[in-house]
Amino acid sequence: MAKITFITQSGESIAAEAKDGSLMELAKNNNVSGIEGECGGVCSCTTCHVHIEANYYSKTGAPGDIEADMLELDDHVSEYSRLGCQVQITAELDGMMVHVANE
């Protein structure tokens, strides 16, 4: 089990728990504002863009090739950017905070 806290652009904080699935799925199941997951998790839309808490970034790892290209020119890109649909939840991520990049 991993407990993950999403912080939305409006500052709302939503705590959610899952043992597997992706960050995008977890956010959607908890109706986190700013995570749309329009393409259903296939790296085609960037509507699941999040910023990973710095000290967890080594645990989620860096984006894959397509993911990095999709993020490269995004207005809200940061060095901790990931597409939520490409981050799989594991117990290691327990306690992580992620900031939702889009409104």
Partner: peptide, 10 residues
Amino acid sequence: NAKAYVLGTK
């Protein structure tokens, strides 16, 4: 070629 796609979009 996601690079071409995002660049084209911009």
